[in-house]
Design a protein around this nucleic acid. Sequence first.
DNA 1: GGCATATTCAACCGGATGGTTGACCATGGC
DNA 2: GCCATGGTCAACCATCCGGTTGAATATGCC
Lengths: 124, 124
Amino acid sequence: MVDHGPLVWFWRIMSADLDTVFAALADPTRRAILAMLLEDDMAVTDVAEPFEMSLAAISKHLGILTRAGLIAQEKRGRVKWCKLEPDAMRAASVWMQGFGQFEPVNLDAFERFLARELESGAEG
Amino acid sequence: MVDHGPLVWFWRIMSADLDTVFAALADPTRRAILAMLLEDDMAVTDVAEPFEMSLAAISKHLGILTRAGLIAQEKRGRVKWCKLEPDAMRAASVWMQGFGQFEPVNLDAFERFLARELESGAEG
DNA sequence: GGCATATTCAACCGGATGGTTGACCATGGC
DNA sequence: GCCATGGTCAACCATCCGGTTGAATATGCC
């Protein structure tokens, strides 16, 4: 959606607070929320629905994700919409790939392997 | 270095505890330690040397990194050596790349850009 | 055996985290 | 205007986290 030039990229990566990003990712509820938002943007109430905890708790989680830059929230009417904001995760990913000297994962190959594996598992 | 078959891979990724991996990565001291170990394997005392905190604190950090699977420790004589263990980070990275549908970073291009950028910056 | 080195353990402390509840705004529909 | 809906705020609680210190446990060297 946004058309980041590489300089903007560089700045974002350098200024990104990896502490808060990784801390945000360290909670299973928050990772689940991110996964849900991967499907589609959602209102806060809808995000909270599948979880067995109070709306206030989810609201806090969303605040943490927002402060980490992992999502963005936008109020339209009385509904607050949450959507993924990929830059922060990308910054963390870039940091991680600094460790990629260990023959980095070939994701394409891995996915192909998984597909084959699951397919044959379903048949067998 | 290790010759993981893809099934081993799959198992490791599925059973990896992302909570502990991301939590371990959320601390700047621990990320610095990982970066140091990227250079070379190190003894606990040497890992602790550049930090302004007690050896016991570093020992705890190393324990956390070990429990997260990010490093391995091996005692040889009275010295305990620490070395990177790339699988855990790779598991986290794979999880992250699930969000890669947002035009994933072209790392090669990014690095080339950075190199060019820094070079011209040094000259100008 | 005895001492120095390498590392961990245990107890403690202050501050952050993840959850709760109940009160509090803001907005839309009637 | 009034009520239901959507969401946050504030106070509180238990637990975890990152650090400290001092004692304890290897191991190597003489």
